[in-house]
Design a protein around this nucleic acid. Structure first.
Length: 270
DNA sequence: AGTAGGACCTGGTGGC
DNA sequence: TGCCACCAGGTCCTAC
């Protein structure tokens, strides 16, 4: 689920509410949430340390601990992070991890599909997943985009490749390409300089708007405050297969491109 | 270097 | 209504 605007929204919300007090206890209810660390090692390295800062790279959340280690979290498809002042009384479905602070607040990691992961790392440069991430969309220059596109690969696959651009996912890739009027199957090296410049601007525009609206809630995504985002009300192609294009009324197509369901207007996107 | 497919999971939806 | 195949916002791995 969560792409850059969603993860950034969660980060901002958690920055406002997460306590600065030490972590008293960390309970793991689904062991595979920790792909690299043993439960004991993980708990002992987190316990008694506080969260100093929350950063983000691509779709990863990075909790800097007072031990100088990073607690790295990836929400994958259905992960949620919610902070409560008091631990909820009723047992929660899909609870993967519960972090309890010495001031009694709790941070819950809920994950219906259980794809989400958590691990510790000493330095981001050597951190699995994070170290190979590409450029943040907001830092991307038109020139960098041009060099990424100079290959015989569908432009959609290039936008989704986290080693190139970090943070774009399936929803926003479809929306960006629609806004840019570019067919997702076009090879990167077929784009003109003018198209690349326009595409670059649409990346910035869609990401800015999605962030402003605190992300897209299709089903599971919630902000750090447990609320829905609202960009789903502004989607023009994603999830609109067979519905009329808002510009030309041609039915929106849906095809598998680069292994992902891709929505586009066969008339507006060439 | 590329891409296609399967794996990891659970649950909602659409078709019959 | 009931069942089942298929699909889902992400990433990693293997095989071609």
């Amino acid at each position: 689920m969560p792409e850059l605007p969603e993860v950034e929204t969660i980060r901002l919300d958690l920055c406002a509410v997460l306590p600065k007090t030490p972590i008293k206890e960390i309970e793991v209810f689904y062991p595979r949430v920790l792909p690299y660390d043993s439960l004991e090692d993980f708990a002992s390295r987190v316990q008694n340390h506080s969260i100093v800062k929350i950063e983000r790279r691509g779709k990863y959340l990075l909790f800097l601990l007072s031990s100088r280690e990073y607690l790295v979290v990836h929400l994958r498809m259905t992960g949620q992070l919610l902070c409560f002042l008091e631990p909820p009384l009723a047992p929660l479905r899909y609870l993967s991890v519960r972090i309890t602070f010495s001031s009694r607040e709790v941070l819950l990691f809920l994950d219906q599909r259980k794809f989400g992961t958590m691990y510790l790392c000493k330095a981001l440069e050597t951190c699995k997943g994070v170290s190979s991430l590409g450029i943040e969309p907001f830092d991307l220059t038109p020139l960098q985009l041009e060099s990424m596109l100079s290959r015989r690969t569908p432009v959609k696959a290039i936008l989704l490749d986290q080693r190139r651009i970090a943070g774009l996912g399936n929803i926003y890739a479809d929306e960006i390409l629609y806004a840019a009027g570019i067919h997702p199957r076009r090879c990167g090296d077929s784009l003109t300089a003018r198209e690349i410049k326009y595409l670059h601007a649409r990346i910035q525009e869609v990401m800015t708007e999605a962030l402003k609206r605190k992300g897209t809630t299709i089903r599971d995504y919630r902000t750090g405050e447990g609320k829905q985002g609202s960009y789903q009300n502004h989607l023009l192609v994603y999830g609109r297969a067979k519905a009329p294009c808002v510009r030309c009324e041609t039915p929106i197509s849906k095809e598998k491109i680069g292994g992902r369901g891709s929505h586009f207007c066969p008339s507006c996107q060439r």
